[in-house]
Simulated assay, not measured.
Amino acid sequence: MKNFLTLEWRILAFLWGIALLTYTAALVLQYQLYLSDYLGLLGLIIVTLTAFLNPPKLLIALLLLLLPGLFNLVSFAYFINVVFQFGISGLVAPGIQVLSLGLLILLVSKRRHKMLRLYQSSLGRTPHEATQQKQYQTQVFKARFEHLSDQEIERRLATDLVPEARAALLALQQERQIAKRV
């Protein structure tokens, strides 16, 4: 149940709500839907299936859905579709869809750590570079935690920490135990 309360699921539910209102209203009022509306519905179906079949991939799937929406290639809301267009009116005028822009900003700002990991993994860092980065981060955490007492270290170890911070605290704890023995 906790999985369904994440930001990604809320955004997906919001998009479904808007899309269902749009398609229902278009059906009742007999408005013509465009290709971008149908592509938006198809994208929502694919993202929803991805979310149920492979929940860890929901963030990536939402990004892949919202990015074309940002450039108004797919649409979710027929009646509240606000697009900032630029260019010459006689030619194809590209635009930025406000709904997708807002949802992308929300998603990226709230999931910036996951986005950073996704960005780093997509760049294909070598295992050696990843190990060096982890060692550097551990050393930074270790320098930050050196002033903590043994009780504070124990208390922090009981909390949810990033792996590098946990490794730094454990290293400090071991060093202090070795120093006490000598």
Rank of each mutant, 00 (worst) to 15 (best):
R155H: 12
R10S: 13
A77W: 11
L148E: 04
A93P: 06
D150E: 10
L148N: 08
A26G: 06
I105H: 12
G87Y: 00
W16K: 08
L41C: 00
I153M: 10
F86Q: 02
Q133M: 14
Q135R: 15
G69C: 05
L29R: 15
R156P: 01
F52G: 12
A13M: 10
L70C: 01
R156L: 10
G95W: 03
L39C: 08
Q85W: 12
L106R: 06
R112N: 08
K180L: 03
L39R: 08
L103I: 02
G124H: 14
W16E: 12
P127K: 15
R117Q: 09
F79D: 05
L59P: 09
V74H: 04
I46C: 06
G40Y: 03
A25V: 11
Q151E: 14
A93G: 02
F86S: 00
S89W: 01
T48Y: 05
Q120Y: 02
R176G: 00
P127S: 06
Q174W: 04
R166F: 02
V182I: 10
E175D: 05
I105K: 04
A167R: 13
M115A: 07
V140Y: 03
L118Q: 10
Q174D: 09
S89N: 12
P56T: 03
H128M: 15
Y136D: 06
F145H: 03
A93Q: 15
R111E: 09
L21A: 10
H128P: 08
K114H: 10
P94W: 06
L5W: 15
N72A: 14
Q30K: 12
L170Q: 05
L104T: 03
I11S: 08
S122Y: 08
R117L: 05
Y23G: 04
L58G: 01
F4D: 04
Q174R: 13
M1H: 11
Q135H: 11
K110N: 08
L66T: 08
L63M: 12
E152I: 08
Y23W: 15
L44I: 12
Q137E: 09
Y78P: 05
V108W: 07
L73N: 07
F14M: 15
Q30F: 09
Q133P: 02
V83F: 07
V28K: 06
F76M: 11
K57N: 13
A143Y: 01
Q32K: 11
T22D: 06
G69T: 00
G17S: 07
P56I: 02
L66Y: 10
R112I: 08
L66P: 00
L12F: 07
L169N: 01
R117P: 04
A25I: 10
K2E: 14
L70S: 07
V182R: 13
H147E: 05
E129C: 02
G90W: 01
A143Q: 11
L65I: 09
Q97Y: 02
E146Q: 03
Q177K: 15
I46D: 03
E154N: 13
L103F: 04
L63V: 11
L59S: 05
R125K: 11
F141G: 02
F71T: 13
R112F: 06
Y23S: 11
I18L: 14
D160C: 09
L44E: 07
T131G: 01
L107E: 06
